[in-house]
Design a protein around this nucleic acid. Structure first.
Length: 808
RNA sequence: GGGCGGUUAGCUCAGUUGGUAGAGCGCCUGCUUUACACGCAGGAUGUCGGGGGUUCAAGUCCCUCACCGCCCACCA
């Protein structure tokens, strides 16, 4: 064993060994009946792992390794999401770069090309998980487009259909003109943009002047069917019921009253364009107004806009409309206006609200049991604030637009016959369910990618087939993910699990922190602030990276910190070296045995057990950062600086009992550290004398109360040592044991140099004065809890003794 | 506009039920004859964002203001 622990090579070796020996597989190390199941949030096949994946992987791996050591039948399910629009976006852009397009090569060729491309990316991602030391069952890799998974998706759809919860409706949707598909509200991101607000006058038909409206989308004037004002708006009361002439097109439309108009905005009068605005769509529907469309699916002006405009880019059309207004003296003014505009999450094209025929899933019946389950705490979100958010999101969830006009994804199990009958069936029907026609055509649309993600925890187990795995591993235990995905994924897994299997897929949802760049900005490729998690892993090791990420994790957003990772590296190195001390001194013939003879040996055994319990508490509460603190303190302060220093001399003397006990203590330390630092602990384990199973599947230390009484045995020695080192004041110790340990750990030659009796005297006098003040305060003594007063008295007495012991 | 969170040492952050502020890094001082200098021992540094309130006692509970961040959102 070298003095410097070098993770590179060691970690890769263990990662291969564990996987090859089947120790990552479901059920490895199983010694009890209960299962422990986590389904990894399947990364999109499009990319590589980012820092959030590394943190999330570390969190899940700690829980999984811990449960594996406790003997649970543990399954950590890996795989990928086909990520419909995200994947199509990447491949489509590749085609554009090659000077072609998906339309040119056609659907079949496009899908084939996508399959080819993701054969490479998937491999990369799984290798990155391996490099992190993630103990997922790599033999069970699943993909949301595997054939059995497709069965699950289609079954989900047909069951919803059978309940009558899926319907087709013409509604206004968010339309991405680049991808030429509808996207859900959740896939639209709002970005601040500079715009121009145009104020245009619409003349009344009776010649009594005009009414002014304000708009940022001048081209949509062509599709106006009304002007609306607020019913209580005194300025426009006279106008209600009159008619105005729409500029350019000359259409006569009514002025209506609707409370949804905001009088304070713009001119207070709103032009109504039901075909191209969600609010106008609703107002139009409630007032029985027609829907006109002037913008086509490609985002350009369509034929309905008239021959002058057809085919124009919207911006050009805007300019022409403005020119017309100016020419006819109907342009009142134009103002700079900065506002949030909806854009496509994937390609950032401006979203066009369009009326289109889409498939919807009614949410009310699906959400209700999920809301109840959350309210009854049958599933819990951590932290608690996210639990409330999850409930609120379900309560407010609008019907889910599940159809997408994409090519990459699960095609809807809907067929049409020439007579227009609709057959919904899976497996695919041979003939129309209504008329028996064999000439069926499948609906070209695919499902929203989250429709299939929602089934991840059980579709990966073979559902809808009644597999032994579903029976054994469903429901699972924990799901850990990022905050922004609660509505997209967590809630949908909850309601689909309840609907299809009658149970929620997990009992706890961990919402982990977002890892920001060191400067506090978001980590993103476009900003250049991203840090590849493989970088710290290569530089400092997977153990150090795992430790560092867990240390900085909390409930809020956290900044990435190399310092935290270096701390992890130091911990691994420290551990390596104390193991070197013990193993070398014990010799190859030694064996571990708990044979404590002296106080410090009983004390470290008690400390190890107490720390084990503290760490378990942290993990039960999902407080990963707190756990790293416990482990660091245990290793550096308790195990190395006190225990190892105290027994060092006896180890050199060849004391077999001390060596056996030290080996036993080291084994317990390694076990407690293993879930966070799996590689270095396994490597040390290998170097211990005697044959034993791999640490990864070795039992987690059992509670051991034998030495609990000695937990505080060293408190007095530690305090005496600190006093001595600081001031050269020798504090009287109570027993030979205490004096012996003091002598072994404290080296007088090093302490004296720092002694400054005068400074110490001043410090003690200050403390004593403060303590006397407090005890002289009647209100404090009368009202503080007795133990607080007593503690203050003891502190005061101790300071007095130390003061008296100071050399003059 | 709505919701949530943050503001504690030079930096990154902990602070459980109110009991008189901590860690790591950095900095200063002193230590290497057989675990580790990726180490050991010691030290300095805080009006706990501002203001008000409750309490014997507030970083912790309440109100308020300021700034920062995230999520959500149909003021065209």
């Amino acid at each position: 064993m070298e003095p410097l622990y070098k993770p590179d090579g060691v970690e890769q070796r263990w990662q291969q060994t564990w996987e090859n020996e089947g120790l990552y597989a479901a059920g490895a190390g199983r010694r009890r009946d209960e299962s422990y199941v986590i389904a990894i949030p399947p990364p999109n096949v499009t990319g590589s792992l980012h820092m959030g994946h590394a943190l999330n992987g570390s969190i899940q791996d700690v829980l999984v390794r811990w449960h594996r050591m406790m003997g649970y039948d543990t399954l950590w399910q890996p795989g990928f999401d086909h990520a419909g629009i995200a994947t199509q976006n990447v491949v489509e852009k590749q085609l554009v770069a090659e000077g072609t397009s998906r339309q040119q090569i056609g659907r079949d060729a496009f899908v084939e090309r996508t399959w080819e491309w993701l054969g490479q990316t998937g491999r990369t991602i799984m290798d990155q998980y391996r490099r992190l030391g993630a103990s997922v069952d790599y033999s069970r890799e699943r993909f949301t487009m595997d054939d059995p998974y497709i069965d699950a998706v289609m079954t989900f759809f047909t069951r919803l259909w059978d309940r009558g919860w899926i319907y087709r409706a013409n509604r206004i949707v968010n339309w991405c003109p680049f991808h030429r598909t509808a996207v859900s509200d959740l896939e639209v991101v709002h970005e601040d943009m500079d715009d121009t607000l145009t104020f245009a006058r619409y003349p009344f038909t009776d010649g009594s002047g005009s009414i002014t409206i304000a708009t940022v989308r001048q081209a949509t004037i062509l599709a106006d069917v009304a002007v609306a004002v607020h019913p209580d708006d005194e300025r426009y009361r006279h106008a209600i019921g009159k008619e105005v002439v729409v500029p350019v097109v000359g259409r006569t439309v009514p002025v209506i009253a609707d409370p949804r108009v905001e009088p304070a905005f713009g001119s207070g009068a709103l032009k109504i364009t039901p075909g191209h605005d969600p609010l106008d769509f609703e107002i139009g529907r409630d007032h029985d107004l027609p829907q006109l469309a002037v913008i086509g699916l490609d985002g350009r002006m369509c034929d309905a806009a008239g021959p002058e405009f057809a085919g124009l880019d919207q911006r050009e059309a805007d300019d022409r409309v403005v020119a017309w207004l100016k020419e006819h003296d109907q342009l009142e003014k134009r103002e700079h206006y900065r506002h949030a505009v909806g854009t496509c999450e994937r390609c950032h094209s401006r979203i066009e609200p369009l009326v289109s025929l889409q498939w919807w899933c009614a949410m009310e019946e699906l959400a209700r049991p999920a809301i109840e389950a959350l309210q009854e705490r049958r599933v819990r979100f951590h932290p608690e604030s996210q639990h409330r958010f999850a409930i609120k999101s379900l309560e407010e969830a609008p019907d889910w637009c599940i159809s997408r006009q994409l090519w990459w994804g699960h095609q809807l199990p809907i067929w049409y016959c020439p007579d227009g009958h609709v057959t919904v069936q899976w497996p695919a029907p041979d003939a129309c369910a209504e008329c028996g026609s064999g000439a069926l055509e499948r609906d070209p649309d695919v499902l929203d990618t989250w429709f299939s993600s929602a089934l991840w925890p059980f579709a990966t187990l073979g559902w809808p087939a009644e597999t032994a795995e579903v029976a054994r591993y469903y429901p699972g235990d924990v799901n850990s993910t990022a905050r922004e995905i609660i509505r997209l994924w967590e809630n949908r897994m909850i309601f689909s699990g309840l609907f299809l299997l009658g149970e929620i897929p997990f009992s706890d949802v961990i919402i982990h922190s977002t890892v920001l760049a060191p400067d506090g900005r978001r980590m993103s490729k476009s900003l250049g602030t991203g840090i590849d998690p493989m970088e710290p892993i290569d530089d400092h090791g997977a153990d150090a990276t795992r430790y560092g990420l867990l240390k900085i994790s909390s409930t809020q957003d956290v900044r990435f910190s190399y310092g935290a990772i270096e701390e992890g590296r130091k911990l691994a190195n420290k551990l390596w070296n104390v193991a070197r001390l013990i193993v070398t001194a014990a010799g190859p013939e030694a064996s571990a045995a708990v044979r404590p003879r002296d106080l410090e040996e009983r004390w470290i055994l008690a400390r190890l057990d107490a720390a084990r319990e503290e760490v378990e508490g942290c993990w039960h509460r999902f407080e990963f950062s707190a756990a790293t603190g416990v482990l660091y303190h245990l290793t550096f302060d308790d195990f190395c600086d006190w225990y190892a220093e105290a027994i060092k001399a006896r180890l050199y003397d060849g004391d077999a009992d001390a060596a056996a006990t030290a080996l036993a203590a080291l084994e317990r330390l390694l076990a407690v550290l293993h879930p966070v630092l799996p590689h270095v602990t396994e490597e040390i384990w290998l170097n211990l004398p005697a044959q034993r199973p791999r640490l990864i599947v070795s039992p987690w230390p059992e509670p051991d109360s034998s030495f609990a009484a000695d937990l505080h045995a060293l408190d007095r020695v530690q305090e005496a040592a600190q006093t001595f080192r600081r001031s050269s004041v020798q504090v009287e110790l109570g027993s030979d044991d205490e004096r012996r340990i003091f002598a072994a750990v404290v080296r007088p030659d090093r302490a004296k140099a720092n002694g400054d009796a005068e400074a110490e005297r001043a410090r003690l006098l200050k403390e004593i004065a403060r303590g006397e003040d407090m005890l002289a305060n009647a209100r404090f003594v009368d009202n503080a809890p007795p133990q607080v007063v007593e503690a203050e008295r003891e502190k005061l007495a101790r300071y007095q003794r130390e003061l008296e012991a100071l050399p003059l």
